[in-house]
């Protein structure tokens, strides 16, 4: 296997982590939707927390993506 093919495979394997992130972000927003549906007056407080959770989870996706970029381009 030449280096270029190995790089492409490695980058592909590195972004498997995104599956977990997808589940995580889905969980966050499903919880956000159901909590706002139950208590619409709490929307402002819950929304900030949801966005914070989203950003923290998304960071994990970006770590994986960054590793993939490093493998591909660096």
């Amino acid at each position: 296997m030449d280096v270029a093919a190995a790089k492409a495979l490695g980058a592909g394997i590195a972004v498997i982590a995104l599956a977990g992130v997808g589940i995580g972000i889905g969980n966050i927003f499903s919880a956000l939707v159901s909590s706002v549906a139950r208590n619409p007056s709490a929307r402002d407080q819950v929304f900030g927390l949801g966005i914070l959770g989203f950003a923290l989870t998304e960071a994990v996706a970006l770590f994986a993506l960054l590793i993939a970029f490093l493998i591909l381009f660096a």
């Binding site: 960071a59 770590f63 970029f69 381009f73």
Partner: peptide
């Protein structure tokens, strides 16, 4: 984590 989060977000977006 604080530094890598910000840096990775920006790099990933621009890449």
């Amino acid at each position: 984590s604080l530094s890598i989060r910000l840096f990775a977000n920006m790099v990933a977006g621009h890449v």
